[in-house]
Simulated scan of single mutants.
Amino acid sequence: MKATQNPPTQVQVTPADLLRMAALYLRRHGWTQGSYYDIYETADYLTPPACAAGAIGIACAGHRVEHFSQLDPDALADYLAALGVFVDYLDTTAPVFHIDEDGYLLDEHTSPYSWNDDPARTAEQVITALDSAADEWDSLRITGGENA
């Protein structure tokens, strides 16, 4: 860097960073199914157990949000990017396709919501998937130790 250049003032947070933060959140505060946050926690509880999407939302906003539409534009862009990386990972590792009664494909992507809410799903599977999706994102973008 030349002496006349200004150093960057902000660190770029990647979708992989957000997915790892979501996994860490779930390790520390717990995981739930059926809603973004454990419905049995009080409304003012700051760190309720969360589903995968809820934990990604918290990682993006820095606090709980009841729906991703409540995120500011920058946090919403980060949320959608991280969720998209997670969906891409699920599409390759745990595809779930919804076919109607006529045999037509209704949804070609795995829903992170229905995947999270599968009765056979465990917290460890969700945490591992978030970490693995982050690792995959990094492996596709890092060459020689630098972002490509």
Rank of each mutant, 00 (worst) to 15 (best):
Met1Val: 03
Met1Glu: 10
Lys2Tyr: 06
Asn6Gly: 07
Pro7Thr: 10
Pro8Trp: 03
Val13Gln: 11
Thr14Glu: 03
Thr14Asp: 01
Pro15Lys: 05
Ala16Ile: 03
Arg20Met: 08
Leu24Trp: 00
Leu24Gly: 08
Tyr25His: 06
Tyr25Thr: 04
Leu26Glu: 09
Arg28Tyr: 04
His29Gln: 04
His29Cys: 09
His29Val: 03
Gly30Phe: 03
Gly30Thr: 02
Tyr37Asp: 04
Tyr40Arg: 12
Glu41Tyr: 06
Glu41Thr: 14
Ala43Pro: 03
Leu46Ser: 12
Pro49Tyr: 03
Pro49Asp: 09
Ala50Gly: 08
Ala52Trp: 01
Ala53Gln: 08
Ala53Gly: 04
Ala55Gly: 11
Ala55Tyr: 12
Ile56Gly: 12
Gly57Ser: 13
Ile58Leu: 09
Cys60Val: 05
Cys60Ala: 10
Ala61Glu: 14
Ala61Gln: 15
Gly62Ala: 03
Gly62Pro: 07
Glu66Trp: 04
Glu66Ile: 08
Phe68Asn: 11
Asp74Ala: 15
Asp74Gln: 13
Asp74Pro: 00
Ala77Gln: 13
Ala77Pro: 00
Asp78Thr: 02
Tyr79Leu: 05
Gly84Ile: 07
Thr92Lys: 13
Thr93Val: 14
Thr93Gly: 01
Ala94Asn: 09
Pro95Tyr: 01
Asp100Asn: 15
Tyr104Gly: 00
Tyr104Lys: 06
Leu105Lys: 07
Glu108His: 10
His109Tyr: 05
Tyr113Ala: 08
Ser114Gln: 03
Ser114Ile: 00
Trp115Met: 02
Trp115His: 02
Asn116Arg: 07
Asn116Ala: 06
Asp118Thr: 13
Ala120Gly: 07
Thr122Gly: 00
Thr122Cys: 07
Ala123Ile: 04
Gln125Thr: 04
Gln125Lys: 05
Leu130Thr: 05
Ser132Arg: 12
Glu136Met: 01
Asp138Phe: 00
Ser139Pro: 06
Leu140Val: 01
Leu140Ile: 00
Arg141Val: 02
Gly145Met: 02
Asn147Ser: 04
Ala148Gln: 13
